[in-house]
Design a protein around this nucleic acid. Structure first.
Lengths: 185, 185
DNA sequence: TCACTCATGTAATTGGTTACATGATTAG
DNA sequence: CTAATCATGTAACCAATTACATGAGTGA
């Protein structure tokens, strides 16, 4: 975690804004995305929740069971919403990694539309540029008889192409329907 | 960095095995991949190089220029090659993130072929599984009128699909030419 | 009986970032 | 004349990992 300025604290804040959950729930959700962005350990989730509670960014509802760990469901408080909001409005890193980008995408609910579009656009430009570099490098490498070195390159190009396609179609969807403004559906 | 057990130290070792370079060169190379896996700061590269030198994992050739920082070109030593080798043979984390996977892919040169194929296969299985989950979730979400939440999901599916395609074609390329090992599919 | 899921947490360590310091050379 | 690139490095800080500790319930 902590990719491109997105740290567990803010990520958790963003998840709790969507729905109240326990530390265990958070871990499970993140685990399902670990193939893409990895998953933080309990050792960072629980202490973060604790500090969030101390700072009154979250409130907790405890469901006690005799003789076993109580289930604690955390909810975002007004203060928590404020911190999240503040964080969202501070400028994102200029060239986010795929991971940082995905994390922000997950928190997109909390972002004003124009902020979101700006980030998508920024990402598109960067990926397009890097993809061009990748193509060049691939061309140069084609001469050399070094098949393994090409693996990562190939992979990068495949991902870049897919990402570009996706970004273009999403950006298209954002710019076309809003011919004026309106349309919040 | 430090995704899924791949830390700068080993990454640098792997890069130096391909060719001798300076700290600055390393940074530049990594910078070109930052859209995919991010890039470590100088604050981690230079100290790592220093410790690598102290441990005699690398040797250095200094090109002095009066009145400006000398250009230091690092090369892997035999000890360095050993450490890299040792690291490569220790078991990789079972479910690597995309980042960890790419990092290992970049170091694929140093990997025995069967190790590499195993990792590709493992990755394929995991991505396939997660992709299935993603599809389910997407289906469930389709009911809800919450378009933003779907963004990350959509993105994930697009990337997963591209990755699966790529992995399948690569694995195919590895199993066909060596028509001695049967493919189980 | 064994392994896995549920469910919480803490302490020690470490890996990496941020911010600083320095300064020549080249391109616009 | 300014901005970027080249090129190295250190010190303070902090976020996150690893390893540990606990224990009931469920399914094979």
């Amino acid at each position: 975690m902590a990719a491109g300025g997105v740290k567990v604290r803010h990520f958790i804040l963003g998840l709790l804004n969507e729905q109240s959950m326990s530390g265990y729930d958070i871990k499970r959700f993140l685990e399902s995305l670990s193939w893409l962005i990895g998953s933080p350990s309990y050792g960072s989730i629980y202490p973060t929740l604790k500090s969030l509670l101390e700072d009154e960014r979250v409130s907790v509802e405890i469901e006690s069971h005799p003789d076993r760990p109580p289930r604690k469901t955390y909810s975002l408080t007004e203060k928590g919403r404020q911190e999240l909001d503040q964080w969202i409005h501070e400028p994102a890193v200029s060239s986010p990694s795929l991971k940082a980008f995905v994390m922000r995408l997950i928190l997109a609910d909390n972002m004003p539309r124009d902020n979101l579009v700006a980030q998508l656009q920024g990402r598109r430009d960067m990926v397009a540029e890097q993809n061009a570099t990748l193509l060049e490098t691939a061309h140069t490498l084609r001469q050399e008889p070094n098949p393994e070195r090409r693996l990562a390159l190939d992979y990068g190009m495949a991902i870049a192409a897919a990402e570009l396609d996706w970004l273009d179609s999403v950006l298209n969807g954002f710019s076309l329907p809003s011919s004026g403004d309106a349309a919040d559906e």
